[in-house]
């Protein structure tokens, strides 16, 4: 059902927007501003997110990166400006996007199976069908055998795998990840980051990834948008070239990887309190 809707929106799109643009960007953010009372969280922010790639939103805390992500998700409304996903304006949450939450947001009273299938449950998919889909993604994220476990019986890393499987199982074109590994311990985080690379390769989806870790952003991203705070704006967009196709183990030794980290740190260090 979800797939069907997306294809339909493709059709719309081909009429309105030049095809070249569509091939490049899955998500476009145009002149978005957002304020909370007197505080200006985002000012006139524009950014393109290439299809099938992973874009990181990187910046110090309070720079509005989560706000931007939630605007893309349709959970928050922008004061002005537009967000388009596959050429269609975002008016609220939609089947074309799935969210992975920083605090996992699992239902504590539901087991792994129901948690993973929850997005499908809300779409009214029959139980046997949605459990078959969930089963597959539970296995993909490496949680086979834990289908009947409850969130409190899992470690932080495993809980986030449940959150990831839930987002994957609704088969949305765009995955929005809000600091997904920040509540996960260091070793699990590294494993996750390696898995992310594989996932981007395999799933052919567009990933938007919020993080405050420079190393993490550079490690997993095809494109890094560095945001500066108060009010938030894009200071630069970096596209690593040389190490993206290297295997996971060698990236951290690549000179370009190290250079980019230094460069980003140089521009962010002034904003650290």
């Amino acid at each position: 059902m979800a797939m069907h809707q997306i294809e339909k929106s493709y059709d719309n799109l081909q009429v309105v927007v030049p095809p070249a643009d569509v091939a490049q960007s899955a998500v476009s953010v145009r002149n978005v501003s957002k304020g909370y009372g007197n505080v200006e969280a985002l000012r006139d922010l524009s950014l393109e997110f290439p299809r099938g790639q992973l874009t990181s939103l990187l910046g110090p805390s309070g720079c509005g990166k989560t706000t931007l992500l939630k605007i893309i998700a349709g959970l928050l409304k922008a004061d002005s400006g537009d967000v388009e996903v596959n050429g269609v304006k975002v008016a609220g949450p939609g089947p074309d996007r799935a969210f992975v939450f920083q605090d996992f947001a699992l239902l504590p009273w539901a087991n792994v199976m129901r948690n993973v299938a929850f997005g499908l449950e809300l779409r009214g998919i029959a139980k046997s069908e949605r459990e078959a889909i969930a089963e597959k993604y539970i296995k993909n994220v490496g949680l086979a055998g834990f289908e009947r476990s409850y969130p409190h019986e899992l470690s932080g890393g495993m809980r986030q795998r449940v959150g990831l499987a839930r987002a994957l199982s609704v088969d949305a074109q765009v995955l929005l990840l809000d600091e997904p590994f920040s509540a996960v311990d260091e070793q699990n985080r590294r494993k996750f980051q390696e898995d992310m690379l594989e996932l981007v390769q395999k799933e052919k989806k567009t990933f938007i990834f919020v993080t405050h870790s420079i190393e993490e952003a550079v490690y997993v991203s095809d494109q890094i948008a560095v945001l500066l705070p108060r009010p938030s704006r894009v200071s630069e967009v970096i596209r690593p070239t040389s190490f993206r196709h290297k295997d996971a183990a060698n990236i951290r030794r690549d000179p370009e990887y190290l250079d980019i980290i230094d460069r980003i740190w140089a521009s962010l260090r002034n904003y650290v309190e």
């Binding site: 939450f101 997005g119 779409r123």
Partner: peptide, 22 residues
């Protein structure tokens, strides 16, 4: 917890679902 309500909304829950399931 607002995060699980937000989760449900992002996965397209209607108001009725949010009340009954969350």
């Amino acid at each position: 917890p607002s995060s699980i309500k937000e989760m449900a909304t992002s996965f397209l829950a209607r108001d009725r679902d949010v009340i009954l399931k969350i």
